[in-house]
C-alpha cells in the first residue's frame, strides 16, 4: 500500500541517528523485564551452589530454568548493549575510536547472548 506521509513526516522525531526514542524505550522495557529475570537467574544460580555436576545439569535441564536463562540472556544482551553505548557516547569523542568501540560493544553483547544460549541449549538437549 502506498504511504501518503511526506518525507518530513516520516523523519520527524527520529533524530540524527534515525532511531528516535527506540533505544530509550528498549532500555525501559528490558529493565522492567530484567528485574524479574535477574530474580529467576539468581534463584537458578543459588540452587546450583553446592550441587554436584549431575545435579547441576539436571537443574539446567529443567524447562523452567532453560526458559528463564534464555530469556535473561536475550534481555540482558539488549540492555547491556544500550547501556554501554551510552557510556561510550558520553566519554569517547574521537569518531573512529567511538565507531570501533560501538561495534566492539555490539559484538561483545552478541557473543555473550549467543554463547550463553548455545551452552544452555547444549546442556538441556545434549546433556
Amino acid at each position: 500500500m502506498r504511504d501518503f506521509r511526506t518525507s518530513t513526516a516520516l523523519a520527524r522525531g527520529l533524530g540524527a541517528a534515525g532511531n528516535g526514542t527506540r533505544d530509550f524505550w528498549h532500555q525501559r522495557v528490558t529493565s522492567v523485564l530484567g528485574v524479574l529475570l535477574i530474580a529467576g537467574v539468581l534463584i537458578v544460580i543459588s540452587t546450583s551452589v553446592g550441587a554436584d555436576y549431575d545435579e547441576v545439569t539436571n537443574l539446567l535441564s529443567n524447562p523452567l530454568a532453560v526458559i528463564v536463562l534464555l530469556l535473561a540472556l536475550l534481555n540482558f544482551c539488549i540492555h547491556m548493549r544500550i547501556g554501554m553505548q551510552v557510556v561510550i557516547e558520553d566519554y569517547v569523542h574521537g569518531p573512529v575510536t567511538k565507531a570501533l568501540l560501538l561495534i566492539a560493544n555490539t559484538g561483545f553483547s552478541a557473543v555473550i547472548g549467543v554463547a550463553g544460549a548455545a551452552a544452555v541449549l547444549k546442556i538441556a538437549f545434549a546433556g
Binding site: V56, M80, I112, A119
Partner: peptide, 18 residues
C-alpha cells in the same frame, strides 16, 4: 559496567557446565 564485564563469568559458568 561491572555487570557488563561480569557477564563473562555467567557465560563461563554455562559453557563450563556444557
Amino acid at each position: 559496567i561491572a555487570v557488563y564485564i561480569g557477564t563473562i563469568v555467567f557465560v563461563w559458568w554455562l559453557i563450563a557446565i556444557a
